[in-house]
Structure formats: structure tokens, C-alpha cells
Amino acid sequence: MLQTHRFAAMLALALALGFAGQPCAWALTDAGAPTEAEIAAHAQREETRARIQRERDALDQQRRKDEAACYQRFAVEDCLSGVRAKAHEVQTRLRREELQINDAERRDKTAQRLRSIEQKQQDAKDAAAGAVPRTPTPRVSASSRAQHESDARERAARQQTHERTRQAENASRAAAQPGREAEARERFDEKQKAAEERRAKHRQAKSDAAASGRKPAGGLPTPP
């Protein structure tokens, strides 16, 4: 609500300045409604124009006083040349400022016209397709853009952290894999060795039984 009131106040100021007969007056036209930023920029430009005009008036009064004082001196022409050169320097600076704000104003008007053309083209497409003309897309405020960018950065940071954690876990598993394989081979070798020892004992027992005439014991189970 506060932003709406502020926008309405700025719009009223722009309209008042537009109808005040300024040299480069800016007002609402068929080029489309200005944005809040454009209205604020226009108000600032009108303030600058008023300040330039005040400086010009003061400069003109001061120049006349200085020229009158020159006529009381011996070197009148040299004095007048100095006064006029100083006034010309200030006038040049003020004119440069004025041209800059005029250029900015033309850019704003061009942007408004482009928006109006795009809106009319879109409305024509909607009408041809039998659709209801769309309402202008609300402009995203600077604070909203900043919040969206902050959220995007946070999501990217979380994704990077997750990716680094996953890579570390994979590296840890890869580093531990050779150790597990070595343990498995060692257990297999131990089992094979134990089985071979049992078979050797069984053969020795059969040999001893055959030598003593005893019936040999039953065979050993097949090792896993």
C-alpha cells in the first residue's frame, strides 16, 4: 500500500511537471505508462533542470555586475574578456549537464514506446487466437530480484557441498577396496592352507594304518 501511494505521488509530480511547459517536458503519452523508476528519474531530471536555470540566472546577474565594474577600470576590454570567458565556461558546463539529462529522457521515452509496441503486438496475437488480452506482467522489484539471486546462490552452494561429500565418500570407498580384497585373499589362503594340512594328516593316517594293518579311518569331508 505504501509503495502504491508513493508511486501515485510520483506520477502526480511527473504529470504536473509535464504540463508546466518545461523545455523538455515529459508526460504520459500513447507510448505506454512509465515505470516507477522512470518517474523517479524524470523527477530528478526536472530538479536538475530547475537548478541549472537558477545557476544561469545567478550567472547572468553576476556577469552584469562584473561588466559594470570593468568600466570603472583602466583596461576595460581585458576585464570584459575575462568576465565573459568565465561566464562562457560556466554556461558550457551547464549546457553539458542539460544535454545529458535530455539524452536520458529520450532513452526513457524510447523504452516506453517499445513496451507499448510489444504490448499491442501481444494483444493482437491474443485476440487472433481468441484469447483474452493479457495483463501486463508485474515488474519484479529490486528487492525481489536480490532475494531470488540469494536463494539461487544458496541452492548452488548446497549442491556443491552435496557433490563434494559424495565425491569424498566415493574416494573413501575406493581407498578401502584394496584392503578388503587383501583381507579376502588372506582368508581364502588360510582356508586353503588348513584344508591342505587336513588332507596331509589324513594321508599320513592312512599310510600309518596301512603299515600297521589297521583299517583306515573314513575320508575327510570335501573342504568348501
Rank of each mutant, 00 (worst) to 15 (best):
R95P: 09
V90Y: 00
D60H: 02
D78L: 08
A20C: 10
A25M: 04
V76N: 02
A9F: 01
Q44H: 04
R73D: 14
E89K: 05
A20P: 06
V83I: 08
E36C: 02
A25E: 06
R54P: 04
L99G: 15
R49I: 11
C70M: 09
R84D: 10
R95H: 09
D78Y: 00
R56D: 14
A14H: 00
A43F: 01
R63C: 10
A9L: 08
A33P: 11
A68M: 04
A16G: 11
Q100S: 14
A58E: 14
I101Q: 04
Q61F: 02
D57T: 12
N102Y: 00
A58T: 12
L80R: 05
R73T: 15
L11G: 07
G32P: 05
G32E: 04
D57N: 07
D66I: 05
A33Q: 06
E77H: 00
A31R: 03
A75L: 14
A25T: 06
A37Y: 00
K65A: 15
E55F: 02
W26N: 11
A27I: 13
Q100P: 05
A68V: 08
Q72H: 03
E46W: 01
E46C: 12
W26Q: 13
R54I: 12
P34F: 03
N102W: 02
Q61T: 15
K86E: 15
L99H: 04
R64I: 12
I52Y: 01
R45M: 08
Q61G: 10
A33G: 06
L15K: 03
H88P: 01
H88R: 08
R93I: 11
I101R: 02
I52E: 04
G18E: 09
L94F: 03
Y71E: 15
E46Y: 02
L94E: 09
V76D: 06
A40L: 09
R64S: 13
R51Y: 04
Q72K: 05
I39P: 01
M10L: 13
E89L: 07
D103G: 10
Q44P: 04
R95N: 13
E55C: 08
L17D: 11
G21Y: 02
N102S: 11
T29K: 00
C24M: 06
R95A: 15
L80C: 08
A43C: 12
A75C: 11
E97H: 04
L99Y: 00
R73L: 14
A69L: 09
E97G: 12
L99M: 12
T48D: 01
T48A: 08
A31T: 09
A14Y: 00
T29C: 05
V90W: 00
A31E: 09
A43I: 13
W26R: 05
Q72R: 06
A85Y: 02
R96V: 15
A50E: 12
R49W: 04
V76A: 03
T35H: 00
E89F: 02
R54A: 15
R56H: 06
Q22R: 03
S81I: 13
Q53N: 07
D30Q: 04
H88T: 13
Q72T: 14
Q100D: 15
Q100E: 15
A40W: 01
N102D: 14
D30M: 05
L94P: 07
H42K: 05
L94M: 09
G21P: 05
L80M: 11
L13E: 13
N102E: 13
W26L: 14
A31L: 06
A20Y: 02
A37P: 07
A12I: 11
D78V: 10
D60E: 11
A12T: 14
A43K: 00
H42R: 06
E36K: 00
E55N: 06
Q53K: 06
